[in-house]
Design a protein around this nucleic acid. Structure first.
Length: 844
RNA sequence: GCGGAUGUGGCGAAACUGGUAGACGCACGGGACUUAAAAUCCCUCGCCCCAUGGGCAUGCGGGUUCGAGUCCCGCCAUCCGCACCA
């Protein structure tokens, strides 16, 4: 009579039902409390991978659970569809990036549906379609009009493989984040978004993000890098060699340690500093030095070992508090033009780099902060002192502590008009120009007469031309015969379209707003979007901790600034999930092998032994991927979902294993046997089973807590326990109820078997629409508790006693225990600790 | 170098505000059912010892406490982020 659960049949059947009934379409006008659950949308690279499955399963469980607890849930899905791989495919295979991308989307959409995710497909969007990127262009123009967009020539990160510019956030260890190629510096005219205008807001906003991981907030704080100090100007001495510079300009520097100003013994400027550039003209030695500075690598090891180098410009700076004091001005390789003003005051005693530099060039090293009793004016040793202390050898600052001295110097600089207290950020503006085809065209027209002119909004979208070729490297838009030639919208004269496209991170900076509201004629409707936003729970990988998550926060604040949306932070809750990993294998001759090329330690094809490598993130390059498609077809969607949630806490890595998925599949089988036994018509024997009912209600409450906390592994463990308890329980009304309730408890995680059982049990409607079971609070209170009995802190016995037993009685029961008597060896306890409901500790 | 996280059986992990360490899963081993296999079910499963009992165990060394995986101090290891940021 017992039949096996036919996962393939049930999966197909229920997925069809959900689809046809649009079960998971969110109702904008619902009166229920709202819940916006979102996972980071995928790049349509071809097929989904296990990382996607894990990510989307987590979000799905939460979305389904929220539906069951009475929320109107928005759980949408879309495609981050612009980007380099489509162009690479075009170059390699001669296909069109659009065709390639849309095919991948179709494939991946089918794969996601195959997993039964509760997604609102009505709101599906792809960033590569004009009805998305056209609205993005409109937003870009709004920002342009508000002064949040500007164009400037600057040294940019050029990726020679992808042949495009990269933002600072996209350069990892001196290499392009996607291509891995060493990045070069180039001077180009680029469009920038003024993210620095929001530096402080973005920093302060982090404090309010209680449901973000501290780790991510810290990374963003460090990335924004706020420093407070003094910006001031060194005047140049008249006797300086000023043939090539204007002495009146002086040199502006920034310091976070204005208190140490009397310890300055030199001034250093960056190789790119205008004064350095001016000096290099007609001075071959200076020119050669500057060239040498630019050669240095930017990798960790190189920076660590690189020597501090300087070039004496012959200029002399005047100390602001003591015009008699002259400081030599050096061009130095350790000063960055991009930070502060590209020049520093060198205080060798209290800054390690300055000390290295001073020792090398024999400059004086005056101490100005005492270190304990060390206060001599000449600083000894090769380790700079950067700690707290009292100011010494510093005239009017002597005797002050560091913080007071900072304030004093800033006050005097401001009074004297030669400096001001200032804040400097490490964050730089977001360069968004990309010299690529497959991206959002920047809606600007360049006119000789009128300059950069925005495309009038009624001419949006600026659509990508379809007829482009990828046979030669470079940007196909730039060499398209007609596309870029247009009339100037302002004067009507001959003009040229901007041929750069927007960084694809712009596309992902507002898609969550478009999901919430998608009118045809504008990017979104303010009121409609605000009904859903901010996203309640956002789930994705940590690799986006800075890039995407910072850009999206900026974009949202920009929209708020423009008055388009009254939301400051886009993601109220953030969860960064771990990766799916797998062992790696290498053949005897060093080739990576995929798991199915290996059998019991040898390569199947050659019979030679393989080296088992580290467990690493699944990646194509290491060939340790497992394709979800085959697995789902073999075990069914529920088993795969179940495995993704089991064992590993969601923030940690999950190691894929064949035996793990087998285990999940076995559990689905156990569930089915229970559900089948509960079919209507089955005779109900017996009545109460208090222990089982108590277990059931404890589990209902526990799982709800676990799911809300995204502790899926714990919820899974509790479901295993409950299932075992039901299996072992003799037939009773309580058992029948427990099985019926179990269906709803597993429904968020294993929705197909739950629907199948729900229908078989003769219930109306879908379990997806059913309510989460109510907890009977009275049942949660146990009448009896197990008390640990310790003698001198060591466990000697456990006793099961009535819950409200009086303290004295509990103590007496403990003293009566055989083991306790034995360990007390006739002594009377000196002290008795009774923790109600927990333990008794007898101290002898 | 700076900042952060983590460390518990063979493995993945639980353990609420300090209160029975190892729930639950995987693997291994044993057994039942079967002609057999699959499937299923049951049992054992941290280490050690003079074994109906006991000792030792949460990276290492100290400390606080009646009691420490949990708190404090000092180490070690691994992983992640940033990287000449003035």
């Amino acid at each position: 009579m017992s039949t096996r659960f036919n996962a393939l049949k049930a999966d197909a059947e229920w997925q069809k039902v959900w689809d046809e009934r649009r079960t998971f379409a969110a109702d904008d006008n619902s009166a229920k409390p709202r819940s916006y659950v979102l996972e980071m949308f995928p790049y349509p690279s071809g097929k989904i991978h296990m990382g996607h499955v894990r990510n989307y399963t987590m979000g799905d469980v939460l979305a389904r659970f929220r539906r069951m607890t009475g929320h109107e849930v928005l759980h949408p899905m879309g495609w981050d569809a612009f980007g380099m791989p489509a162009e690479n495919a075009a170059m390699e295979r001669g296909v069109h990036p659009g065709g390639w991308t849309r095919e991948n989307i179709a494939t991946m959409k089918a794969q996601l549906k195959r997993l039964g995710f509760a997604l609102d497909w009505d709101r599906e969007l792809a960033t590569c379609e004009p009805d998305y990127y056209g609205h993005e262009q409109a937003l870009f123009l709004d920002m342009f009009a508000a002064g949040l967009v500007y164009r400037k020539e600057s040294a940019v990160n050029w990726d020679p493989v992808d042949m495009t510019v990269l933002a600072n956030e996209q350069v990892i260890d001196g290499r392009g984040w996607r291509s891995g190629a060493l990045v070069e510096k180039r001077k180009l005219s680029q469009w920038f978004l003024k993210i620095t205008a929001f530096a402080d807001d973005l920093l302060k906003g982090l404090d309010g993000l209680e449901h973000w991981p501290d780790k991510v907030k810290l990374m963003q704080r460090n990335w924004i890098g706020k420093s407070q100090g003094l910006t001031f100007r060194f005047a140049l001495a008249a006797e300086s060699d000023t043939r090539r510079v204007t002495p009146g300009d002086g040199i502006e520097v920034f310091s976070t340690r204005p208190d140490t100003i009397f310890g300055a013994s030199f001034v250093a400027i960056a190789a790119d500093h205008p004064i350095a550039q001016a000096i290099a003209v007609g001075d071959p030695a200076a020119e050669a030095f500057i060239a040498r500075c630019k050669q240095g690598g930017t990798t960790a090891a190189e920076l660590d070992t690189q020597e501090k180098l300087g070039f004496d410009t012959g200029l002399c700076a005047l100390h602001p508090f003591d015009p008699e004091r002259r400081l030599p001005v050096y061009i130095a390789n350790f000063v960055l033009m991009e930070y502060g003003s590209g020049a520093v005051m060198g205080v060798p005693a209290h800054d390690q780099r300055d000390l290295d530099f001073a020792r090398k060039y024999g400059l004086s090293v005056p101490r100005v902060v005492s270190d304990g009793d060390k206060a001599a004016s000449a600083f000894e040793g090769d380790e700079a002192y950067t700690g707290p202390g009292t100011l010494v050898n510093s005239h009017f600052l002597d005797g002050m502590d560091v913080e007071d001295a900072k304030r004093e110097v800033i006050t005097r600089a401001e009074a004297g008009g030669w400096g001001r207290g200032s804040t400097v950020y490490r964050l730089r503006d977001w360069g968004v120009s990309r010299q690529r085809y497959w991206g959002t065209p920047i809606p600007i027209i360049h006119c000789e007469a009128c300059g950069a002119v925005p495309v009038p909004k009624d001419q949006l979208p600026v659509v990508l031309p379809e007829d482009v070729g990828f046979d030669v490297p470079g940007n196909p838009l730039d060499r398209h015969p007609t596309w870029k030639h247009v009339a100037c919208p302002s004067c009507g004269g001959e003009a040229r379209r901007e041929t750069d496209t927007l960084d694809t991170f712009a596309d992902s900076s507002w898609y969550f707003v478009r999901f919430a509201s998608q009118p045809k004629d504008k990017p979104f409707d303010k009121a409609a979007a605000e009904k859903w936003l901010p996203v309640g729970q956002y789930i994705g990988g940590v690799e986006h901790a800075i890039l995407h998550l910072l850009y999206a926060r900026f974009w949202t604040r920009a929209l708020q600034h423009l008055g388009l949306l009254d939301v400051a932070e886009p993601f109220a809750g953030l969860f960064t999930q771990g990766m799916v990993t797998h062992a790696t294998f290498k053949s005897a001759d060093g080739r990576w092998l995929s798991p199915d090329e290996v059998q019991s330690g040898v390569e199947t094809a050659t019979g030679t032994p393989v080296t088992v490598g580290r467990v690493e993130k699944m990646s194509k390059s290491k060939k340790n991927t497992v394709d979800p498609t085959g697995i789902v077809d073999r075990y069914g969607a529920d088993a795969v979902r179940w495995f993704m949630l089991s064992d590993s806490p969601p923030e940690r890595d999950l190691e894929w294993s064949e035996s793990g998925i087998e285990g999940s599949w076995r559990f689905i089988g156990r569930l089915w046997r229970l559900f089948e036994g509960n079919a209507p018509g089955a005779e109900i024997l017996g009545g109460e089973d208090k222990a089982l009912s108590r277990k059931l209600h404890g589990t209902i409450a526990g799982i709800a807590e676990d799911i809300e906390a995204l502790s899926f592994n714990k919820a899974v463990a509790k479901l295993y326990e409950l299932t075992s308890a039901i299996e072992k329980a003799p037939p009773s009304a309580a058992r029948t109820e427990a099985v019926a309730t179990l269906m709803r408890l597993v429904a968020p995680m294993a929705p197909h078997i739950a629907e199948e059982a729900w229908a078989a049990a003769g219930n109306e409607g879908l379990i997806a629409d059913a309510a989460w079971p109510q907890v009977d609070a009275a049942l949660l209170v146990e009448d009896e508790v197990t008390i640990a009995i310790q003698v001198n802190g060591k466990l000697r016995d456990t006793l099961t006693l009535p819950r409200d037993m009086a303290r004295e009685e509990v103590e007496a029961a403990a003293l009566a225990s055989e083991n306790v008597v034995r360990f007390l060896e006739g002594r009377a306890p000196k002290k008795v600790i009774v923790v109600p409901g927990r333990l008794v500790n007898l101290v002898a």
